Amino acid sequence: MIAYLSLLLRLAIWFLLTADFSLANITIGFCVALLLPPRFAPPPVLKEWLRTLWEIIVAIPIAYWEALEMIFRPHTREEIALEQVKPNRTPGLIFLDIFSITFTPKTIVLKYHQDGWYEVHRVRRTKRR
């Protein structure tokens, strides 16, 4: 089951890069996804994949809300923070974590440290006194 999720993730990345859904591109993308070497990492649990996909779905309305909030109430304070990666994350799940953090307008991942940290840039409102 996890191999299918990995294949689907590779195909999704292919379609995001090419933005072409012709039959030839689908065939090429499928071949590329199959030919890419597998990652030698512990297999992720299906529960973790579903939890991460749910976080991405929840991030969509949050992204709209944050965009409207930034339009009507200016955010002038910036900070860079380190966030720890959840334990036992495979490269595919780390990619989805970075995607869900970067998807919202107020945050972006600047760097992924191999020792298990994300460097996250945040924009916040200035507190009124």
Results as ranks from 00 to 15, higher is better:
Met1Ile: 00
Ile2Asp: 00
Tyr4Phe: 11
Leu5Glu: 02
Ser6Leu: 07
Ser6Pro: 00
Ser6Asp: 08
Leu7Met: 15
Leu7Val: 00
Leu8Pro: 00
Arg10Gly: 04
Leu11Gly: 03
Leu11Asp: 02
Trp14Val: 05
Trp14Ile: 07
Phe15Cys: 05
Phe15Asp: 01
Leu16His: 15
Leu17Cys: 11
Leu17Val: 07
Leu17Thr: 07
Thr18Phe: 04
Thr18Asn: 11
Thr18Met: 06
Asp20Ile: 11
Phe21Gly: 15
Leu23Lys: 03
Ala24Lys: 06
Ala24Val: 07
Asn25Met: 15
Ile26Glu: 08
Thr27Asn: 06
Cys31Arg: 11
Val32Tyr: 07
Ala33Gly: 11
Leu34Val: 14
Leu34Asn: 14
Leu34Asp: 10
Leu36Thr: 09
Arg39Phe: 03
Arg39Gly: 05
Phe40Thr: 00
Phe40Cys: 00
Ala41Val: 12
Pro42Val: 14
Pro42Gln: 15
Pro43Thr: 09
Pro43Ser: 09
Pro43Asp: 07
Pro44His: 11
Pro44Asn: 10
Pro44Cys: 14
Val45Gly: 08
Val45His: 10
Val45Ala: 12
Lys47Val: 03
Lys47Gln: 03
Trp49Asp: 00
Leu50Cys: 15
Leu53Cys: 13
Ile56Cys: 13
Ala59Cys: 09
Ala59Leu: 08
Pro61Gln: 02
Pro61Leu: 02
Pro61Tyr: 03
Pro61Asp: 00
Ile62His: 06
Ala63Glu: 04
Ala63Arg: 04
Ala63His: 04
Ala67Tyr: 02
Glu69His: 13
Glu69Pro: 01
Met70Phe: 03
Ile71Lys: 10
Ile71Gln: 04
Phe72Gly: 09
Arg73Ala: 12
Pro74Thr: 05
Pro74Lys: 10
Pro74Gln: 05
Thr76Ile: 13
Arg77Ala: 07
Glu78Met: 12
Glu78Pro: 02
Glu79Asn: 13
Glu79Gly: 14
Ile80Thr: 08
Ala81Thr: 09
Leu82Trp: 08
Leu82Ala: 11
Glu83Thr: 03
Glu83Ala: 08
Glu83Arg: 09
Gln84Gly: 01
Gln84Phe: 01
Gln84Ala: 07
Gln84Glu: 06
Val85Ala: 14
Val85Trp: 05
Val85Phe: 12
Pro87His: 12
Pro87Ala: 13
Asn88Ser: 04
Asn88Glu: 12
Arg89Ala: 10
Thr90Ile: 03
Ile94Gln: 13
Phe95Gly: 01
Asp97Pro: 00
Asp97Thr: 13
Ile98Tyr: 03
Ile98Cys: 11
Phe99Glu: 08
Phe99Tyr: 10
Ile101Cys: 00
Ile101Pro: 01
Ile101Phe: 02
Thr102Asn: 15
Phe103Arg: 09
Phe103Val: 05
Phe103Asp: 05
Thr104Pro: 02
Pro105His: 04
Pro105Tyr: 01
Pro105Thr: 03
Thr107Glu: 02
Thr107Met: 02
Thr107Tyr: 02
Ile108Thr: 12
Leu110Tyr: 12
Lys111Pro: 01
Lys111Gln: 15
Tyr112Asp: 11
Tyr112Arg: 11
His113Gln: 10
Gln114Met: 09
Asp115Gly: 10
Gly116Ala: 12
Trp117Cys: 03
Tyr118Asp: 04
Tyr118Asn: 04
Glu119Gln: 14
Glu119Val: 12
His121Gly: 00
His121Cys: 04
Arg122Val: 10
Arg122Tyr: 15
Arg122Pro: 07
Val123Leu: 14
Val123Arg: 08
Arg124Thr: 12
Arg125Gln: 06
Arg125Trp: 01
Thr126Met: 13
Arg129Val: 14
Arg129Thr: 13
Arg129Ala: 14
Arg129Asp: 13
